[in-house]
Nucleic acid binder design. Structure first.
Lengths: 152, 152
DNA sequence: CGCATCAACTTAACATGTTAAGTATTTTCG
DNA sequence: CGAAAATACTTAACATGTTAAGTTGATGCG
């Protein structure tokens, strides 16, 4: 079997970790985890979103999002109100405090991203992202199960 | 600020998730998590390894590895014995049962990997891995902290 | 209308990620 | 030699990943 350290999953894992290692210290100084930061960024770009929509945007599973939203709400970084037309849905939005926190983190975050871009090269970065998108596309859909197991 | 769904961390996260989604069902059928599978694969390639070395190979943090090794040992998939020359170190190796389990998972795992390679294209896959390696390299070393915070 | 079904979350339970602290053993050096 | 520092793990504590089950509010339909 192929040396697993050369496998695609490991390559992706190591690359992502190398990138996130750059951001984590800064986020940590502001009391945010990577996932919390993703949610705030997603919310900052829109007025309000339903939980399910937010999960899709921030690429988090429902249960994780539920917990994080509970915590962010307790910290007054986001606000919730149930939708008028459907009591099941809740509309989530970023609070004033949330906006303020984002403003305090954004400069450092931008600087780190710029540093990464500069180190790796802007053109290569664009190429890489293009390929990652294609990979994602090529694996979307029916799934590459091996057929040996129960498809259910 | 850049639409965060287009950011490098998100691209890497989505790509990796797209890949792992292919493998998880098969691993799950065999009662293994992704991390447990990584450890078994790493161990299968060598006679025995120290915990620290294994952590580096399987790309796991010490605490995660400690827990997982405890569980794998309880399931008799691995074996441990403390090193003769240094009582602090323990040598970990895969057990017969572990080898058997690997043999039962490997075919499906290989098939899935082949399917991914075929869908995305072998040449592109090689290119992608090359770029991921370069990204990792370019971010190794001093760290791209923004300098605004405490370097400690 | 009323019941079965579906939809949107939320909770629960267990595994891992992440940082800090603890433990046991070795090494370094005065 | 023996105390201090370093090394190799392990535990602890809290956050998230992942799947299954539970809750509550909508919807479809006879």
């Amino acid at each position: 079997m192929r040396d697993f350290s050369q496998s695609l999953p490991m390559s992706l894992l190591r690359a992502r970790e190398a990138v996130m290692r750059q951001f984590r210290p800064s986020l940590r100084e502001h009391g945010l985890t990577e996932q919390q930061w993703r949610i705030l960024r997603a919310l900052a770009a829109i007025e309000a979103a339903e939980v399910t929509e937010l999960a899709r945007t921030a690429f988090l599973l429902g249960p994780s999002l539920s917990r994080i939203l509970r915590d962010l709400e307790a910290r007054n970084l986001i606000e919730r109100k149930t939708a008028k037309t459907d009591q099941r849905r809740s509309m989530v939005s970023i609070s004033k405090e949330g906006v303020k926190l984002m403003a305090s983190v954004a400069p450092s975050s931008e600087a780190i991203y710029a540093e990464i871009t500069q180190r790796f090269g802007a053109r290569k970065l664009a190429e890489l992202q293009e390929m990652l998108g294609e990979l994602e596309q090529s694996l979307a859909g029916p799934g590459a199960g091996d057929g040996a197991g129960a498809e259910e």
